[in-house]
Amino acid sequence: MNMPLIQTKNLKKYFRTQKGDLHAVDNVNIDINKGKTLGVVGESGCGKSTLGRVILRLLEPTFGEVIYNGNDIIHLNQKQMNNIRQKMQIIFQDPYASLNPRMTVSEIIAEPIKVCKIIKDKEELNQRVFDLMKIVGLDYRFINTYPHEMDGGRRQRIGIARALALNPEFIVCDEPVSALDVSIQAQILNLMMDLQEDHGLTYMFITHDLSVVKHISDEIMVMYLGQCVEKAPSEELFANPLHPYTQALLDAIPIASLKERDKLRKIIKGEVTSPINPKPGCRFASRCFHVTAECKNDGLGLVEVSQGHYVSCILHK
């Protein structure tokens, strides 16, 4: 086994609120090997974006370790962190909000290079921007346009080019395609898979749509209210989903075929409950079809049911 590129140990992030602690990320352990993709799936408010940000130290964790290439990065100082950040980048969810409207495409892509003072020669910098635009499939004629002149798919390509500018090893992709049309989604997903092959990138891919991560992920983690409820290799998770929440997520995807039309689908009721001071026991219990009195007891943890397949549920203890 090779060493994981990125690893978290008992990572926790609580936000202080007036009503009490908001458990955004609660005891999450992940490890991603080099060149692999971990898909993180869950509904709005389950803490997936927070997890991505804590790993990059855009938010400071409350407890736990983030280990990058064997080194704990939580205790690094500003300067050391700046060096590490060049290797870790993020692609944001909303291509409409994550680009500065007052900068042209070339300025946006060149900015990380300028900030890190990697290329000082102007000619060379232009060449690098040009290369990056070519890699992500942006036509050169867009070099002096502003983001508002472009459509969502092209803007997301700018976001990807900016993330690639420093030759990172690890990229957190925070719902990069959820704001895009299906046909453009497919283009961007294909692009990201190509880039992974060509540059040996490692991804953490955050999304709420299980169908999106199926192609791109090697391993998938399902999150609910800050906790990991199921983790398995991609194929295994789709073939054999064990946690009731994973099953519900799969059931909720509308399928583009008439065969499933009249099938009665089990739709989970209700919404995510408040993550502020959660009750002990399984956090999904209030929406679960298989809830028993035992679910309210504490002490549930991830159990390995088969090779690499972990689930946290009373049914699989």
């Binding site: 709005s44 709420h208 739709i267």
Partner: peptide, 11 residues
């Protein structure tokens, strides 16, 4: 909306 909520609303 999220997929689970989408399924609820459409139903």
């Amino acid at each position: 909306l999220d997929v689970t909520i989408q399924a609820q609303v459409l139903a």
